[in-house]
Design a protein around this nucleic acid. Structure first.
Length: 570
RNA sequence: GCUCCCGUAGUUCAACGGAUAGAAUAUCAGGCUUCGAACCUGAAGAUAGGGGUUCGAUUCCCUUCGGGAGCACCA
């Protein structure tokens, strides 16, 4: 971070050895950066307040120009930056990098090949808001990791075999004129809705009706055996689902995947690996099934091949890993999967250490929290889920209403982008591992701590820049006679960006960036409220134009890392 | 039953073991002849209960209560 070297130098000269960690003071009156002396006090064998005073005495005489003054407040040493010097550091080298949005961080993950596996919809099943969080989170993580220099492989593992398909097809076959209905469905979303409804039919029948359950199980075997009576229908509807996934990825704004994996391709391979492992005593026969004894390692036992001889999800994951390492030799694989599968993955990864030693330490379960529904009825529910597409459409409707009287270019596109921002931000602002209690009215807000609030900043800045007839080459850096507190606060926000992105990358948590951007936006709005740009005296005008342009660039870069597109006007 | 996660304003979320627990929203009171009011200013409002660990605990440990998830042939 800008300014840190200067401050560190001060502390070194005062005799501080070892790693230095800073904190941000609770408010601006207490300085711009602080050093807590608790650890130091132990070393120096005095109380923290005395240590702070000692630093002031040692270093207070000869400060670099960037640091205006230092103060000891209790156990803290507080540093006050010189606003003009800060401005020079943040905006002064503008001419050099004006064409580049923001310097990115390319050292942390340099040269690492990282696979991020996310989305994971299953064919013949609805794409719900849990998938939505998964897609949005995965997309953002990919961008953050790429920003750190990782070579990222985008992967997606989709379930196209299993009971859920039998349930769906059973539902379809129950409809007397299903052939007619199917031929009538043309659009991807119509087809997906049809599959969602028939899946719900099958699912409910499976739970409640013993006969239906048996029928569905029999159908499942037929599908496994590629029986002619259902194979054609399976292939057709599988294609429908995959087409719909492409449609929804596009709608959500998930870029193309480098590799789509399917359970149908890991099925046989997984079974083979487990059977081979059985001979090497990696797995064990138990009650007719083949299991891995996780309990030997403080985990729990899991079935890898069922007593019917079918590979379970666990076995398929062995096959999946084998494929992934063979094809890409990644340094890491992040599986973006809900936290309900945390224990499951521990067992699978442990088994992989034996079947695929290369994978050791490289398989990571990236846990994200549950999206649960707040109590109350929701008209949108098919079966027991809220559809991803419904949410996007509903938000779009509300924004259309808000923008009804607005006359702007490409209004339809703008509405879609604003809706997209609202949904994505609502899914990313909560810590990645924490649950989101979903309520439409509160979760996807369009004001306050929301996506549109952030886009609004960019639109406002665009509007000012347009009116200013701003041209980069006309803007040699100039210093105003004084810098307002709101300006300084905004500058302090801008310098933190790089560090924030690094933290988000380390924690694998986009919410770090989301929170930062919201704070930055608030800082901008405070500035905007009290510091006129276009009407300011010439030096201040140029300075402020640069300041808001920089703000816009950081905002756009940050939003980009969240997978959110900005708009010119809204 | 066992294991893991969570419990913070009415609600939805923050807070490397550190300064006065921050926001948003809802409520109330203000602010557009002024660069875009999807905005801004102000008021009121919270750490589930009880023990510990220490200079200091929302954070770590124990316990009670409350919620969620996982725990053998689903994915």
């Amino acid at each position: 971070m800008i300014m840190k070297p200067q401050v560190e130098k001060i502390l070194r000269e005062a005799g501080v050895i070892g790693e230095i960690e800073f904190t941000i003071p609770p408010n601006a009156e207490m300085g711009d950066l602080a050093f807590a002396c608790f650890g130091l006090a132990k070393e120096w064998k005095m109380n923290p307040a005395e240590a702070a005073k000692k630093i002031i005495v040692e270093a207070g005489r000869d400060l670099p120009v960037q640091v205006e003054r230092i103060e000891a407040v209790g156990p803290y040493v507080n540093f006050y930056f010189n606003a003009s010097e800060l401005a020079k550091l943040v905006l002064g080298n503008y001419d050099r990098d004006r064409s580049r949005p923001v310097r990115t961080i390319r050292h942390v993950g340099r040269g690492k090949k990282t696979m991020v596996e996310f989305a994971h919809p299953n064919t013949h099943k609805p794409v719900h808001i849990g998938h939505l969080r998964n897609m949005i989170t995965g997309e953002s993580l990919v961008r953050i990791l790429e920003n750190q220099g990782n070579k990222v492989v985008r992967a997606n593992y989709q379930g196209d075999v299993g009971m859920h398909i039998a349930k769906c097809l059973w539902g379809i076959l129950r409809i007397s004129d299903f052939r007619f209905q199917i031929s009538d469905l043309k659009r991807a979303d119509e087809r997906a809705r049809f599959l969602g409804e028939t899946y719900a039919m099958g699912g409910q029948a499976f739970e409640k009706d013993e006969t239906a359950k048996k029928e569905i199980e029999a159908l499942n075997i037929k599908i496994y055996n590629k029986n002619k009576s259902v194979w054609g229908l399976y292939k057709k509807t599988r294609k429908w689902s995959l087409d719909y996934f492409d449609y929804i990825y596009k709608k959500v704004g998930v870029k193309k995947f480098d590799r789509l994996y399917f359970e149908s391709e890991t099925f046989e391979l997984g079974k083979k690996i487990v059977l081979a492992g059985l001979k090497k005593d990696i797995f064990k026969a138990s009650q007719g099934a083949i299991i891995f004894e996780g309990s030997k390692y403080g985990l729990h036992d899991r079935v890898f091949i069922s007593s019917k001889g079918l590979p379970t999800y666990e076995a398929k994951d062995q096959g999946l890993a084998a494929l992934q390492f063979k094809e890409y030799h990644p340094d890491y694989i992040y599986h973006v999967v809900g936290k309900e599968q945390a224990d499951y993955f521990k067992v699978v990864f442990k088994a992989l250490e034996f079947t695929l030693p290369e994978s050791k330490g490289k398989e990571k379960h990236l846990v994200y929290g549950w999206v649960s529904l707040k109590e109350g009825k929701m008209s949108s529910r098919t079966g027991n889920v809220v559809l991803a597409e419904w949410l996007l459409d509903e938000v779009e409707k509300r924004i259309t209403e808000i923008m009804r009287d607005r006359e702007i270019k490409n209004k339809e596109k703008v509405i879609k982008k604003v809706a997209n921002a609202a949904v994505k931000y609502s899914m990313l602002k909560t810590g990645i591992g924490n649950d989101i209690v979903f309520d439409f009215n509160e979760s996807v807000s369009l004001s306050g701590d929301s996506g549109p609030y952030l886009l609004y900043i960019v639109a406002r800045i665009n509007s000012i820049l347009k009116k200013s007839k701003f041209k980069n080459q006309n803007l040699k850096f100039s210093m105003p006679t004084s810098i307002e507190p709101e300006e300084k606060k905004l500058l302090l926000g801008l310098v933190k960006f790089e560090e924030v992105v690094r933290e988000a990358g380390e924690k694998k948590d986009p919410s770090v960036i989301a929170k930062y951007l919201f704070g930055l936006a608030q800082g901008f709005n405070n500035f905007y409220q009290s510091c006129p740009v276009l009407e300011a005296e010439p030096a201040a005008r140029v300075f402020r134009l640069r300041l808001i342009k920089k703000t816009k660039e950081i905002m756009e870069s940050g939003l980009n890392l969240l997978g959110i597109e900005t708009v010119e006007e809204m």
